[in-house]
Amino acid sequence: MEEFIDKFNYVLVVILMMTGLWSMLAQNNLIKKCIGMAIFQTGIILFFISIGAKNNALIPILTETANHTYNDPNVNEVTNPLTQILMLTAIVVGVATLGVGLALAQKVHQQNDSFDEDEILNNQTK
């Protein structure tokens, strides 16, 4: 139980990712699939950010404080910047891919007049 509390963030990462994965697999609606993809992505981002978080640490912008100076920062008091940067660009690229996904869905809707996977498949086989 203690381990569960210590590592609650990872538990939630897995649940979020699996929610997104389930949505991508099982939902009929194409927009719902796109939202599921975005939720899956936030799960991964949450994993990276929470693995780089430190207890009682400051944001990764250096300032003069009591414990560390501008030129010689105390490493344990500054949150890990590397994981944050990886995720920062991932978010922007994520919205671009979400846009591509929505554009594809819209094109499919133009031709089939539906977002529902079953109806689209029926139209294709007809």
Binding site: G52, A53, N55, V78, L82
Partner: peptide, 20 residues
């Protein structure tokens, strides 16, 4: 996995101190 918020975990103690 390391505990949430552990400043001495491998992620936080190997490469990132260089940049800080």
């Amino acid at each position: 996995f390391p505990n949430w918020g552990d400043p001495y975990s491998p992620v936080n103690s190997t490469i990132s101190p260089y940049y800080i």
